[in-house]
Design a binder for these strands. Structure first.
Lengths: 204, 204, 204, 204
DNA sequence: TATGAATGAGAATTCATTCAT
DNA sequence: AATGAATGAATTCTCATTCAT
């Protein structure tokens, strides 16, 4: 019926979520119109509702789908790692730096900080699935470093948060101020100083 | 002009902004209803419009009014300081920790990260007036520490951001996850570890 | 108390009506704000309500006050007249032409055509006091002309309306299209042609 | 596109404009509520906005749609005419008289006199498309009459306005005073006297 | 008399969601 | 599965009117 047949039925939800990411990034959750999302995915307004029961559900699905895969990559990285922790930490920060610069997902921190508290269930899920797991991963790295005599003892949960904080700040910076910044802010020097200071600060 | 000043008149804007802070904190900017804000200030819907021309203007006024005074306190603190920088940094972090725990302004970081990009002018103002000034303050402290031989040389602008990042993260944490956290998260240990690691990491 | 004392208390209502005429002329009845009217009269919003109980009442008072005096001038003119009717008609048209060009009251026809039907009582008053009286005046002139053999017999009420119609159209034209007309429309030639054609058309 | 065309879709704008004409006629532009218009067209409030972006746009569409067709009828009439102009003028006046008595469009003159000056663009369009064309049509008739020796020379543009003025006045009369008139005013005698006087007045 | 802060009814407009096709 | 016309709840903002001073 349609002149341009859908490539695969299965792709629709993903297409819609991709469109949703873009529209949420531009307008924020509240101001994003379902019709905009649909249109950007090349679909009609009603079509979204075949896959997601509400706008909230789209947001939830977006958050769920966008983050877990990346987390799993990080976990795989850590699992495969042998030897001193510092290089692994550097590698991880490099990955995150790249994401901040290149991935469309940079907007997610801003989006989630702005909206997540309105989605209690999603917040719980996200905290358990992403944050606790992600922080746990880094805390484990720190603990391993302490065991290996690479780091002095310190509250590993706190350290995990401190490792992540500048990464988040850089992501936020890019999406909150980038549109108005005269020079596009470069997060790289900050993150490099971060690793330097952090590793010195954690050293015995 | 009138010999008996109308009691409310002068206080009204501040009352309204306080109410706005609360309502924005609870619902976010988009979901906050002007009527709610007015009601919480003990006023009628229309009254808000005597003082602010739009909801956006309320948000702007809130941001402008809430932050500059605090920044000035920090500047005064720094100006009055003599001797090594580390204690000043500790004192500053202590102040910020207190604010995160006790002040109703904790919600501002979340609110602003979520909304500021929709207010280009306010974003510019905020960046110039608060961020650049605030980061400048810290960068100056770092530079002074370097001059005094207290710190090793490092990109002071980057350091300033690294000093602030965990503070913001803690503020965000409290307002994004606090409502659902089983145990109310305590930012103190993180910020203490932060200062420890930071000072060690900055040391020559 | 007031540094600039009111010249005469009695002048206030008239000042307010004059201001109302201007504001109604610019914005129309519905879009005219009581505050604008007050401000233009150099008074505060509440002051209007000391003299007029409502916006409708202002409109009514304006209409009542603006027209009757002019009508009385016309009646006096007619009463004083002797001899053939044609010169009187020419004089009357000259007066009306002047009003259309110079008086701020030109806007009244437009205003009243647009609003009067919403003021049943005022409409009745206006019809009885102004229209019937004004048309009666002209009809009487026509009748006198017929009696004097100056005009052929014709329905005098109809003639009265025909005499007035182009005057109204010119007033309307100036206030509806004038703001957008490239050349400010000059009603004079039309009204002169009107008298010419009319007098020939009425001749025996 | 759909094989079974949605019954409403195509008809909706016309239905809405018809409803708008009625509601504007009853309440005037400012007091007409979009909901009333929608309801009278058997639609919900929101439906109007699928077809017209604003209340202003409804008014504009109404004016544009209502008048041009009638003007074209008049032009066709004139184009088809041969011989002396007077009978054509009588026929035209007869048509207008009928419209004033029977058509729901009688309210348009009142509506437009009352509102058009607030719609600069529409005013320009209307002046160019309807007035200049309509007056041009009549002026051309007059000019032809002069050429044919039927009329004495006279400013044809002025004549055109004089021809139309009583028609407008009658339309206005019916919609401004009709609701309160004891006897429903009959425009016929006035328009008949108008043609009589006019043709005599124009004769050589 | 005069003021202008306060009120709250009212209306335009938006948009998530539904559902007939 | 897909569409998009239709709905109507919800929200911002306006402004006539009131009334304490």
């Amino acid at each position: 019926m349609s002149p341009v047949p859908r490539r695969r039925k299965d792709a629709r939800p993903a297409e819609l979520l991709e469109a949703a990411l873009e529209v949420f990034a531009e307008k924020g959750f509240a101001a994003a119109r379902m019709e905009d999302i649909a249109a950007r995915a090349g679909a009609a307004k009603g079509t979204i509702y075949l896959y997601f029961p509400s706008k909230e559900a789209v947001f939830e699905a977006l958050v769920r789908s966008a983050i877990v895969p990346n987390l799993e990559r990080a976990e795989a990285l850590a699992a495969a790692h042998q030897g001193p922790v510092a290089p692994l930490l550097r590698e991880l920060m490099g990955l995150l730096e790249t994401m901040i610069r290149d991935s469309r997902l940079v907007v997610l921190p801003r989006l989630m900080i702005g909206e997540l508290y309105k989605f209690p269930e999603l917040a719980r899920f996200y905290r358990a699935t992403v944050i606790d797991r992600g922080l746990g991963l880094i805390a484990a790295m720190h603990r391993k470093g302490v065991e290996q005599g690479e780091f002095r003892p310190e509250d590993s949960d706190a350290v995990a948060r401190l490792v992540i904080a500048p990464v988040l700040l850089m992501a936020i910076w890019r999406t909150v101020f980038a549109p108005y910044g005269d020079e596009p802010f470069d997060p790289a020097p900050v993150l490099r100083a971060h690793v330097e200071i952090l590793l010195r600060g954690l050293a015995p």
